[in-house]
Write a protein that binds this DNA or RNA. Sequence first.
DNA 1: TCTTAATTTAGAATTGTTCTAAATAGAGTT
DNA 2: AACTCTATTTAGAACAATTCTAAATTAAGA
Lengths: 168, 168
Amino acid sequence: MANGLVWPAKQAKSVYHIFVIVTRHSQAMSPTQSKARDTGILERLRTAGLRPTRQRLALAKLLFAHGPRHVTAESLFGEAKAKRVNVSLATVYNALHDFTDKGLLREISIEANRSYFDTNIGDHHHFYFERTGKLQDVALDSVRITSLPHPPAGEKIARVDVIIRIAG
Amino acid sequence: MANGLVWPAKQAKSVYHIFVIVTRHSQAMSPTQSKARDTGILERLRTAGLRPTRQRLALAKLLFAHGPRHVTAESLFGEAKAKRVNVSLATVYNALHDFTDKGLLREISIEANRSYFDTNIGDHHHFYFERTGKLQDVALDSVRITSLPHPPAGEKIARVDVIIRIAG
DNA sequence: TCTTAATTTAGAATTGTTCTAAATAGAGTT
DNA sequence: AACTCTATTTAGAACAATTCTAAATTAAGA
């Protein structure tokens, strides 16, 4: 279900071949690797066409340094404050949107009135725990979808989101 | 994918049997059937344990009289105003939530910052047109899911939502 | 260093939704 | 019908998440 995939026009019931896209995520590093990691993040911003400002670097480090995460603007802002990273809330919003536009993050709509951003940009799905409001990644291949409806003529499927809601 | 369904504990790859639940929706009626329809809606509110007030009746008529619909609070409020139905915005919100709590509507989260309500309460999925923000029902059996991950121990799957996003 | 445009920021504004407290209106007595 | 009791409605205030604005700052290249 890669972005922009078009469904064949007249096929009634096919088996769709689904490929796992491995998302790039920094692993935990030794202190000596720390500068390398920072340059990695800096490079990543630059290649995405985003000026690596102090704020964006700090937020990107929070987001990408330790494996897949799901954040909201407020949660990331809180984390930044706790770590004495000086950024305004507006900048957190700007950065989340800029990162999303450039494909570094993916936005997820689960709850009305709150946007979640996922650092895992590969195709995958989610458990959503209604009790706690937390998300958990579900590997793409653990949900097997063997048929999908055709989109209306001329339309393209951008993405198929599967949200497995865990009772509250 | 009925509500509260518990996945069998140790089964690795089963085919899930999915049943279509036909949702009850009034059909277009001749003028002579109009009173019958109104009493139908009135009865429906009463059985749900909701006092059939003037406002709730009017809103229910807008919602249920003409086949499956997707509304937001604002869109329903606007429609009511256009039809000279006197209700306050707060009442629209109250009614949508009351109807949802009593199982007459289902709430859908697609976009951050906006709740959609669906008059089709049977299990089904959705196309979401990013360009227009509109929703379209997708029959349950046109999406075949042949495997799902197990929820964490002790947790129950409340529902599986599939949203097929049509590129904007 | 200088210039320029991108970015950040505080705070105001906006949007969608919920809350509050007073007024109204069903529904069941009498 | 009048009376009572509680649910419902309502306007407007309050709230939460997000976006906007316009001025200050900063990255990046000449």
